[in-house]
Design a binder for these strands. Structure first.
Lengths: 197, 197
DNA sequence: GACTGACTGGCACTGAGTGCCATACCGGCA
DNA sequence: TGCCGGTATGGCACTCAGTGCCAGTCAGTC
């Protein structure tokens, strides 16, 4: 926590951002699987070995933010009022995070890559599984009581994430013609027709 | 379709079964990640190169059956009466396939390995994604009409699979103390409390 | 000027997965 | 009996992801 470590942290942060930017350019230009780590390292002006000091896997360059998002999601969920319906709270938490990054065209390109590259898709879902650990405790708390709370909480979190995933795919297929929330609500309505959003 | 090709098919089938059996023994004894393909090949009496002619990846040894199961699931779903509720039909289709393999202890061990090995878990979910292609058309047909049928069908199939997955985890955690269907129904009830089973 | 701590590069290694080629087996056919 | 085409096989070399190890560099510190 000295000024030195703060400097290092900022430097490291900048390095992360720079490597990510360079790598994403290559991914979008040549395809994810076609781009090797040697190419990324060369383009970023670092050694192959150093790349792996910043990212555990090639997929992490694209999906690294998902870990942090899971924690942010948990925090957002915990901020929702106690009496609120679980589904309403989950929906509100999810869309409190939605970043309007401006460059929609780029987000679409990234999203297409994500849905069409098997290894990325798999890792993405694997990261989503970690969200369970973040969200289930709070959902379980809100369910309050009952022997099979854990199972019920997992099912609810799982289906919410699944709806988000399905919505993301529809958003990508539909070229972002409607906001993600629209697709999410439609997906949730298909699963829970009685409860309106 | 000559007798020769039939013979080959049977031989191949036997080879598949034998390699799978040998590999599973090694996986359960030493762990999935610890077991190399060289070891499997040596134990099965084939070359490393031949292993890859039977299985595309190491994960496929454990998860290969999931592809066939998706198609069987589709067939089972199509056999359900037309007027039946989609969720009821899906549930019935899923549990018409449940094989009581007898050796529950072994199934538990395999299941534990599956849930605890990241690469296996990821691939397993990836295979489950293929089930979408198998099941969504029939679910969509049953929904009959409406502009966002595809999205709705995907959401329903996705949540059904998610509930199955959550149920599988609970079954594994609970050491198979109750049938899988019990956990599945509980999971589905958490998501759709109004509609009973 | 030695010391510590964090980052870096280079090298060698394992292990998954692929492409290529030569070979062996088996049934059919002249 | 000998040739032929299809299929399975083994071996080799290769790419690429990811890891471990060691040596060097560049702060800031006493």
């Amino acid at each position: 926590m000295t000024s030195a470590s703060g400097l290092w942290a900022r430097t490291r942060q900048r390095a992360y951002a720079e490597i990510t930017a360079v790598a994403m350019e290559l991914f979008l230009a040549d395809g994810f699987e076609q781009t090797t780590i040697d190419e990324i390292a060369a383009a970023a002006g670092i050694s192959r070995r150093s790349f792996f000091r910043y990212f555990g896997t090639k997929e992490d360059v694209v999906l690294g933010h998902l870990i942090a998002e899971g924690q942010a999601l948990r925090a957002a969920l915990e901020r929702r009022p106690d009496g609120e319906d679980v589904w309403t709270a989950l929906r509100a938490a999810i869309f409190s995070l939605e970043e309007a990054d401006g460059d929609e065209e780029r987000m679409l390109a990234v999203s297409r890559m994500l849905y069409r590259t098997p290894s990325l898709r798999a890792r993405s879902i694997e990261k989503h599984l970690r969200w369970y650990d973040d969200l289930v405790p709070e959902v379980q708390r809100r369910l309050g009581g009952g022997g099979d709370d854990l199972l019920r909480a997992r099912a609810i979190v799982g289906c919410a994430i699944t709806c988000l995933d399905v919505a993301g795919e529809a958003w990508t297929d539909g070229a972002a013609s409607r906001p993600l929330a629209h697709y999410f609500d439609a997906a949730l309505d298909a699963v829970r027709p009685a409860a309106a959003g």
